[in-house]
Amino acid sequence: MKRLSVLMSLIILLAFNAFGQRYLTKTGHIYFYSKTPFETIEAHNRQVNCALDVKSGMFVFKVLMRSFIFEKALMQEHFNEDYVESDKFPNATFIGKIDNVKEIAFNKAGTYNAKVSGTLTIHGVSRTVHENGTFIVSDKGIAAQSKFLIKLSEYNIDIPEIVAREIANEFNIFVDVDLKSLKK
């Protein structure tokens, strides 16, 4: 009987352990921005997939390229057809981890600076990246925010000479995701 109660409490403990370990969103927001004197390019994606395992610090993103919305439909078409070639490479992904996961108390409300590293894959090109970000823990969940730069040339995205003055090589990327605890 004693054993049974130990067993029961173990099961309950484990069940609770698993609960609240993983956080997920499918409606995260990523946008990018580049400005030259001739053209401002800005696009928003509000269907970003992001998941976080607060125990191990594993942190992944999956971004459907076709979900980026531009002000000019023609620009959006060119983005998909000619630049990121989203028929060949439908998704951009990030597979990484929080390097300083021990310093972040995911069970305590607050704002934490994080160092994140991993593999960023865009246009079929994978690169190891190290970026800084912020985690905001609240009773609603975990918000993650980051801002970083990417160079198009590093991801084999060609800018034809005729538009070289309109499209900058460097793009500012803004990440803003609200993760909710995965109840399963």
Binding site: L10, I11, L14, A15, N17, A18, Q21, R22, L24, K26, N49, A51, L52, D53, K55, S56, M58, V60, K62, T93, I95, L182
Partner: peptide, 14 residues
């Protein structure tokens, strides 16, 4: 019960 999720497990959530 030892909840060790791989990065693939996380990706599969999508």
């Amino acid at each position: 019960g030892s909840k060790v999720f791989s990065q693939n497990d996380l990706m599969n959530l999508f």
